[in-house]
Amino acid sequence: MNWKQAFTSSIGKKLVMALTGVFLILFLIVHCYVNALVFLEWFGPLGRGYKAYEGAAHFLGSNPLTRIAEIGLLAGIILHIVQGLMLFFDNKTKRPVDYNVHPGNKSSKWYSRSMGLLGTLILLFLVLHLYHFWVPNRYQQLVTGHEKDLYLLMELTFKDLWVVIVYILGCISLAYHLLHGFWSAFQTLGLSTKKYTGLLRCVGTVYSIVIPLIFIAMPLSFYLGLLPDAETARAATQTLAH
């Protein structure tokens, strides 16, 4: 037994998917938490959400540890994508002659069978998402040493209806991907025992609905004008400070 075999067998490949998957699930919690800070606008004086959000974003953006974590995250995502695609294409070769009549949804859920497709949709969405936020922010940081006003960036980005629709679709894909992926990761890691499998499924379902819903709430809120614009919010933070 060597380490290479450990991660290249059919179970080993799945372990890579599960480990990176759990890592991404944890990342999504952080991402979601930071983003959800903008909604503090609804629960306090004007500018509270802006301040909390910008503060957290700045803390993460300027912290060298997060820079390192970001590399890890990128590696995790790439590994998840590459391994996922390889599994997808490899598994496709295991039934050279297909059935004439397909089982459909009689014995499994459509989204469980469509992780490759859902993953690809999420990947396309991710590219757009990075193009919208991460790339310009890092670019400016590199050039000027200062970060962008991400709140403002969101506000501007989510002015376009089509962007909002794409984000909503992306988050729906994510929801279904998680609906299978969350429990599946724990199953692959051997943790979904008889005793815990119900709990894991329950938590997984809640997670897969709540996290994407919060993400969807952001573009939707900006588009519908439910959040104050960046200028007003920033101005309000000045008074908050005193």
Binding site: I11, L87, D90, S107, K109, L191
Partner: peptide
């Protein structure tokens, strides 16, 4: 092929073999 936990096997197994066994296999691995 590799297992992707769709659970179709369990649903179609004539002897109702549970996917909890796959969980155990993974843990053993």
């Amino acid at each position: 092929g590799a297992c992707t936990n769709t659970m179709a096997c369990e649903a179609e197994c004539p002897k109702a073999i549970s996917i909890l066994n796959i969980r155990r296999l993974n843990a053993e691995y």
